[in-house]
C-alpha cells in the first residue's frame, strides 16, 4: 500500500497539510544529511530507482490486475536517507501524472517512506538473523510485515480524518466563519433534491468498518504478490550482484573496465 488513492479535497485540510509539513521536514533533513561527493554519485541512482518504482507501478501481474510497487526493493538498494528523497520524488511525479492527488503528496510520501524504511530495516535485521543465504525468506517476510503495517496506517489515516460514510461530504473545505472545517454540505446540494438525498447519514463507524473490511480482505492478495516479487528480485540481485544489497548504497564501488573483469592489464 505505497500510496493512498484518495483524491484532492476529500481529506480534511489539517491532515493533508500536516502530512506535507512532516514529509517536507523529513525530506529536508535527509537532503541536508546527504551531502558530499559520495551522495552526489548516487543522485542518478535515486532518480533511476525512483523511475523503476514508477515503471513497476505500470506493470501488471497477468492475469491478476495488481500493480506492484517495489518500495521494499528501493529501500534496500537506496538505504534510509536516499529512500526518503526517493519516496517524495515518486509521489511528486505520480501526482503530476494524475495518479494521486497533489494535496495528498505529503501523506503519500509518508506512506511510501514508511514502506521503504521499514522494509530496509526489517530486511537488514532478518538477513543478519537468518544469514545471507536466506535473502528470499528475509525479503518476503520484510515485505509482508511492511505492507501489513502500511495498510494499517492507511486505515488509521481514514479513521483519524473522520472521512467515513457519514462525513464523506464534509471533506476538504474549511468554513471561514468558524474555522472548524465544518461543511455546509449537510444540507447543501441535497437541498436541490438530487439523488433523493438529504436523509441523515449513517454512523461514522459503519463506513470505517466497511473500508477496513475491504482493505484487509483485498490486501493480503497484494501483500503475497508483492512479497513473492520482492523475494524473487532481491534473491536474483543477491546472486548476481550481492554488493548492491549487502554493502549499502553509499559503499564505494570499484569500477571494472570492460575486458578487465579479472584485473588483467
Amino acid at each position: 500500500m505505497s500510496h493512498i488513492h484518495i483524491p484532492d479535497g476529500v481529506l480534511p485540510v489539517w491532515l493533508w497539510l500536516g502530512g506535507w509539513i512532516i514529509s517536507a521536514g523529513l525530506v529536508w533533513f535527509a537532503s541536508s544529511r546527504s551531502r558530499g561527493a559520495d551522495v552526489r554519485r548516487k543522485v542518478p541512482l535515486v532518480g533511476i530507482i525512483s523511475a523503476l518504482v514508477l515503471v513497476s507501478m505500470s506493470s501488471e501481474i497477468v492475469p491478476i490486475a495488481y500493480h506492484i510497487n517495489l518500495t521494499v526493493v528501493a529501500g534496500v538498494l537506496l538505504g534510509p536517507q536516499l529512500a526518503i528523497v526517493s519516496a517524495f520524488v515518486v509521489q511528486v511525479v505520480l501526482a503530476l501524472l494524475g495518479h494521486g492527488g497533489v494535496t495528498v503528496i505529503g501523506l503519500n510520501t509518508l506512506m511510501t517512506m514508511t514502506e521503504m524504511l521499514l522494509g530496509w530495516a526489517l530486511f537488514r535485521g532478518l538477513v543478519r538473523l537468518l544469514g545471507r543465504t536466506r535473502v528470499r525468506t528475509a525479503s518476503g517476510i520484510a515485505t509482508v510485515v511492511t505492507l501489513v503495517v502500511t495498510t494499517t496506517l492507511l486505515v488509521g489515516v481514514i479513521a483519524v480524518s473522520g472521512v467515513t460514510g457519514a462525513t464523506a461530504r464534509e471533506t476538504g473545505a474549511l468554513d471561514p466563519q468558524n474555522l472548524t472545517f465544518a461543511s455546509p454540505f449537510s444540507s447543501g446540494i441535497v437541498g436541490v433534491g438530487l439523488f433523493s438525498g438529504g436523509e441523515p447519514a449513517t454512523a461514522p463507524a459503519v463506513g470505517l468498518r466497511r473500508f477496513a473490511a475491504i482493505v484487509y480482505t483485498l490486501g493480503p492478495i497484494g501483500w503475497l504478490i508483492e512479497a513473492l516479487v520482492t523475494a524473487a528480485i532481491l534473491g536474483y540481485v543477491a546472486r548476481v550482484r550481492p554488493s548492491l544489497i549487502f554493502e549499502g548504497p553509499l559503499a564505494p564501488t570499484e569500477r571494472v573496465l570492460p575486458g578487465d573483469e579479472h584485473g588483467v592489464h
Binding site: G165, T202, G207
Partner: peptide, 25 residues
C-alpha cells in the same frame, strides 16, 4: 473503490470520483 468503501450514498460517491478526475485532468 474508496467511494464504494466509505461513501453512504451515490451523491457522496460521485463527488469523490468527480474530484479525483477533475484534479487529475
Amino acid at each position: 473503490v474508496f467511494a464504494f468503501a466509505s461513501a453512504p450514498d451515490a451523491l457522496a460517491a460521485a463527488l469523490i470520483v468527480a474530484k479525483a478526475v477533475t484534479a487529475a485532468l
